[in-house]
């Protein structure tokens, strides 16, 4: 986990009025926010929207940060919640046919990944991840890619460790079924 003391200093400095401290916080964590959102949503445009949303929330809510958890955990909690909410909103829009599956998963020329090979890999990953339920996907991303412990994931998501273990178990089972023949 990132250095908490330095983070706390940056938060205090920002709350005291130093705008550049916010830039430092954003620079430090924006990639983590983006890639979590990217894996959750499966495309750049949605991930970008979530990143902007999370930064806005951070900007307005940092003054309420109580220094009880690490800044990383706090930011990750906001990111995870925003990502899940975004997916729910999107599913509702899709259900009422305001948006079709094709347009919602468009990555097109606006994607930040230019390397063809990387693009293919990420596309493959997105295709697998989006076939498992959002909550299982969230736990799988945190456990498998971020290598967080169940306790850390529990602190971030607010869910029980037992429930998280079950989510991860089912996610791995499903992913294995999807990938075993490749």
């Amino acid at each position: 986990m990132p250095d908490s003391n330095n983070d706390f200093e940056m938060v205090r400095s920002f709350v005291a009025g130093d705008e550049s401290s916010f830039n430092k916080i954003a620079l430090k964590y924006q990639e983590k926010i983006y890639w979590h959102a990217r894996k959750m949503t499966g495309n750049h445009l949605d991930a970008d929207e979530i990143l902007q949303e999370v930064l806005l929330v951070l900007y307005s809510k940092l003054k309420d940060f109580r220094f009880k958890s690490s800044l990383y955990t706090w930011i990750y909690r906001i990111t995870a919640t925003r990502s899940i909410n975004f997916i729910k909103r999107k599913n509702i829009r899709r259900f009422f046919s305001l948006e079709d599956e094709e347009s919602s998963s468009l990555t097109g020329g606006s994607d930040i990944i230019k390397n063809i090979e990387d693009k293919e890999k990420l596309k493959k990953l997105d295709n697998i991840l989006r076939r498992i339920p959002a909550k299982q996907r969230e736990v799988f991303i945190m456990r498998n890619f971020e290598e967080l412990s169940y306790e850390e994931i529990s602190e971030i998501t607010g869910r029980s460790v037992g429930g998280l273990k079950s989510n991860y178990f089912h996610a791995v089972k499903k992913i294995y079924e999807l990938m075993k023949d490749e």
């Binding site: 894996k39 990944i113 990420l122 791995v172 294995y176 990938m179 075993k180 490749e182």
Partner: peptide, 14 residues
């Protein structure tokens, strides 16, 4: 399978 998934996890671009 899990290793392959990690390989697909591109985080250095952009």
């Amino acid at each position: 399978v899990l290793e392959n998934l990690k390989q697909m996890n591109i985080q250095s671009a952009g």
